[in-house]
Structure formats: C-alpha cells, structure tokens
Computed example of a mutant assay.
Amino acid sequence: MPHTAKMEQVRAGPTLILHRYINRQVFVTTVLVTFILVMVLVSGRFIKYLAEAAAGQIAADALFLVMAFRLPEFLQMILPLSLYISLLLVLGRMHMDNEMVVLQAGGQGHGRIIRSLVVPVLVAVSVVALFSLYVTPRGDAEVNRIFEEQKGRSVLELLTPGRFLVRGSDGSQRATYAESLNREDGYLENVFVADARFDDSQAGRVLTVWAHTGRLVQDENGINYLELRDGYQYQGKPGEADYQEVAFEKARVRIGSENTSSRPPKVRGRTTGELLESPGDNQAVAELQWRWSLVLTVPIMCLAAIPLAKVNPRQGRFLRMIPAVLGYMLYVGLLLTMRSWMADSGGERPWYYSMIWIHALAAVAVFFLYYGDRLWRRRRNT
C-alpha cells in the first residue's frame, strides 16, 4: 500500500505542475487582455456620454457614476472573449515552442489539457453568472434611474453659460442660451430662449425670447419657471413677414415641460427573478435567455480554443487567431440577433425563436473541431 500511494504521488506530480503552469499563464494573459479591452470599450462609451453631457442631456457630475454602474455589463461581455483569446495565445505559443509535442509524447493529450483548464473556466463561469444574473441588472436599473432623474432636471441646472442647450421631443424643441451667470445673485444674464413646434396647427412657427436677466422661480404648485426681465418676444414662421414683436418688463417661461415623458424601466434593468415570473413576455424571455447564454459561451468557446490553438511551428502562432475570433464574433452576433427577434416578435413567439439552437450549433461545431479529421479519415477508408 505505501508503495502504491508513492506511485500515485509520482504520477500526480507532473500533472499538478502542468495544471499550475497553464493556469498561471492563462490567468496573467486573461487579466492583461481584459484590461486592454475594458480600456478600449470604456473609453469609447465615456466619449459618448461626454458628448451627451456637452449637449446638456446629462450632468457632468453623473458621468463617472453611470460608468461605474455600467462596468459590470462591460466585464460580462469582455471576460468570455478575454479568456478565449488568452487560451488561443497561451496554447498557440506552446505549440510553437513544441511544448505540446513533448506533453503529448508524455501522455498529456487533449484530455489532460481540458482538465487543467477546469479551474479558470469555473472561475470565469462563476464571475459571468454573478454579473449577468445579479450585478448587471441592478447596475442597469441604477443607470436607468439616473437618466430619468437627468431628464427631470430643469434647464437652468444643466445650462452652461456661453453654450446652447437644446432639449425636446419629436413634436417640439427648445434651445436655451445664457451669456453669463451671476452666481452671487443667482441671475442668468442675456438669456435667449427659442421654441419650435412641428406637430400641430402651429407647426413651423418659432417663439423667440430675449431678456436682459433671468432667474429660476417656483409657484405654489411646485412648477418651475424661468422668470425673465426686460426683454422682447418674437413670434412667427421663418420666411414669412408676419412676425410679432412684444416688449415685456417681466415674463415667465415654464421649464421642464420640454423634457420627454418618462419611459418605463428597461427590461434589462429587471432582476432575474422578475424575468422568471414573466413567461409570456417576449422581451423578458429574450433577456433571460441572453443572460444564461453569456454563461454558456464560456465553456463552449474554451473547448473550441484548444483545437483552434493547434498550429504548425512553421505557420506562425497567429495563423488561426483571426478566424477563431471571427467565429466567436459570429457566435455572439447570432445570439444578439436572436435576442432582437425574440424581443420584437409580437403575440405568440415561434418555437424556433430560441437561443438554444445557436448553442447547439456551436456545440456541434466544437465536436467537429475535435473529431472532424478522425471521422473524415474513417469515411475515406470505408
């Protein structure tokens, strides 16, 4: 018995070293790839939000809060791709350096490689599941709440002196401008307001107001107004000569009514439990299947990475990188397309509108990556 236990330890020793060797390289590469992809994605999204802040659609002090709540959503999309790319890079390098040849000669085939990747795959699956099923929906709900609050903020709060602020809906639009802000007295100076309507009997007519000063006031009903003093009002249709000019000493313009109506919470901001309780809602079903699909992509694509990383040392380690990444993009693109079809389907959803078929197709493709050559040779020999 002691001799048998010692032999088992001798056998387990190289396997444990192999597991640690691969896991360490996969972990370091995944962290680096994730960091690079997160920086690229966050930078692009931050520029988009920065443009919205410059246009007055969102306050500048809410930008970083929005980005913080959106970060789990970015990570749940990037982590499966990062792990997939890291496996291609690490295993591809091992093929280039003939390490795989040595391992296979020592009896360490695909089965051993797969077992050595169990830990990083389980960690990635757990993180993606935690984000997609719990953390990201809460973050999206908070982002939606922030944007709803920004829509309810008054024009005066978002108005930057020296810059036009344009807000409105499909039927009307308002442009507001103030040359400067007297912070001590709380007055805007040289205020310009232009209202244009497009969907009623007054369509095409523009109401323009200029005033020497303006300040925010509130009536007894809690309605906010911009009180203008010493100004002029012009009303008419551009291109026509029937403009009306009215001078006033004091006038009030209601602010906040140009905002669009509050939208209902987005389906992606609903918790997983709420989605499970709405089996008849196509949007809820599509979102629920999408969340589970993000989890399933991790093991499927990790299994695909092992045969895809196999390259001839004379061919170059990046020979299969581009088609492998394109295959991943096709996989995720099909899932996104199916989610849109499921969410947009009216009435009863067709039975074939399900993401399970895409996962089944991906599983079949992975099967042929492992056994396609063997089946082809067997068919040729028969």
Rank of each mutant, 00 (worst) to 15 (best):
A5F: 08
Q9L: 11
P14N: 10
T15E: 14
L18M: 15
R20T: 13
Y21A: 05
F27C: 12
I36H: 00
F46T: 15
L50G: 11
A54W: 04
I58Y: 07
A59V: 09
A59S: 15
A62W: 04
A62D: 08
L63M: 04
V66P: 14
A68V: 05
E73L: 05
L75R: 05
I78N: 02
P80S: 04
L88R: 06
R93L: 12
R93T: 14
V102E: 02
L103D: 10
Q104L: 05
G106W: 02
G106N: 12
H110I: 10
R112H: 04
I113H: 04
L117Y: 07
V119G: 04
V121E: 00
L122W: 03
A124I: 01
L130D: 02
L133M: 14
Y134E: 03
T136H: 03
P137F: 00
R138P: 00
E142I: 07
S154H: 08
L158A: 09
L165K: 11
R167P: 04
R167F: 03
Y177I: 11
E179K: 14
N182A: 13
N190V: 06
N190A: 12
V191M: 12
A194Q: 15
G204C: 05
R205T: 14
V209K: 07
H212F: 01
T213S: 04
T213R: 08
G214C: 09
G222L: 08
L228H: 09
Y234P: 02
G236W: 11
K237N: 09
P238H: 06
E240Q: 13
Y243W: 15
Y243M: 12
R252F: 08
R252W: 06
I255A: 01
S261C: 00
G269K: 08
T272F: 06
A284G: 07
A286I: 07
A286F: 02
A286D: 03
Q289C: 08
Q289V: 10
R291C: 10
L294Q: 12
V298S: 02
V298C: 06
I306N: 01
P307T: 08
L308F: 10
K310Q: 13
N312W: 08
N312I: 10
R317F: 00
A324I: 00
L326I: 11
Y328Q: 05
A343C: 12
P350Y: 02
I356S: 13
W357M: 13
A362N: 00
A362K: 02
A365F: 14
G372Y: 01
L375C: 07
W376M: 13
R380C: 03
